[in-house]
Design a protein around this nucleic acid. Structure first.
Lengths: 202, 202
DNA sequence: CAATAATTTTAATGAAGATTAAAATAATGC
DNA sequence: GCATTATTTTAATCTTCATTAAAATTATTG
């Protein structure tokens, strides 16, 4: 995460990026908790000890704030996916790792991650981009399932629907998890197993 | 569904109720498609061939519209649950039936059902009520899991987390399903199996 | 420290869209 | 068909924030 080739970045830029990132987390938190329309920029600003107007130093407008939240959410997912794929092993194990990583990120220090409930109200270019990121991630997950089916670790199934089912479950987490560390631990412990329990080949 | 002891209802009231129900479906469709904030009352009204102001004949305000959408969504879930429980059989089969019924309702003629993304912006009394309905439904599902564990059809598991996982997957459906009948058929065919695949006792 | 750049605030402005009231139309019952 | 009730529309109004501009503050750099 936090990409951008280091070394070429000025301290000022670093600070800007970090602050903006804090802001995106605060916004994600508010959006998940109070909904998009129920979240005013003042809510987000309050959480940061700033004034609503100050946010405009970091984003052009509220829509862009949502957009950036979504890009960050997608980044987190992509990061988890890449890390899992790098780990080798068979398809099923890779699926499990991916789930584990993604969930750890979501409920851990990377979180909160925004639920993508407002994609339609993004401006067309942003909407297209976010949908594309989302599509790619789904495709990557389905590819993992295919791989598992091919190597015999996963039972044959409709990968599209199976992917939708598992991803839906994952995507819904921020809807009911709001930061309690005890719950976070339980989710990390249980979800990867629960979500992959039906996949194994007999 | 459509409760209220019949016979005691005037034709006028019936018409009112039916029209309002059509309105709730239209609103649910818009909310799922465009998000809450992205949906103006005019959007909903257009879908019904009405003027935005006409909606106020049926609901007090936009918030109440959302609230009623959520109550309807909860009703649909409850209906599916009751029907499944009535059918007897063991815990696992009852879970499967429930999933089947609920999904059929969601993607079928009862649908669309609104995703509950804006509960926090409901007024306190409504919020409490919707959360309570939601809590009860989760509890009923967890009870089903317990029952399956007790009768040996379901493997021992953390029912809370398992419930969250399965319900999340279900709740997410309206996010990506927007009415295509071919997809609806596939969901009905695949989801109950996929979601219950990991439950069976060895 | 002085000068410049980076942040943040204060104080307006503005616009979208929810809401309302009154009038118009359509339906129903006698 | 007339009177009444139900439904919808037209035409404002009203509110809530998002947004902006200018000023103030804080940080950085030479």
């Amino acid at each position: 995460m936090e990409s951008a080739s280091p070394g070429t970045e000025s301290p000022v830029d670093t600070r800007f990026r970090l602050k903006r990132n804090r802001m995106l987390k605060a916004a994600a938190h508010c959006f998940n908790l109070k909904g998009y329309s129920g979240t005013s920029l003042k809510d987000v600003a309050d959480l940061l000890g700033l004034t609503d107007a100050a946010l405009y130093y970091y984003v052009r407008n509220k829509q862009e704030l949502v957009y950036l939240c979504y890009v960050r959410a997608a980044d987190v997912g992509r990061e988890a996916m890449q890390r899992a794929i790098g780990d080798g092993e068979n398809g099923l194990e890779t699926v499990r790792r991916y789930l584990r990583y993604h969930i750890e990120y979501m409920v851990g220090s990377q979180g909160p991650v925004a639920i993508m409930s407002e994609i339609p109200s993004l401006k067309p270019a942003h909407r297209t981009e976010v949908l594309e990121l989302s599509r790619k991630h789904s495709a990557a997950f389905e590819a993992l399932l295919e791989r598992g089916i091919a190597d015999g670790s996963i039972a044959s199934c409709d990968v599209r629907m199976t992917g939708n089912a598992i991803m839906g479950s994952l995507n819904w987490i921020p809807k009911w998890f709001h930061g309690d560390p005890a719950v976070a631990e339980k989710i990390v412990d249980e979800f990867p197993r629960i979500l992959s329990a039906g996949l194994a080949a007999r």
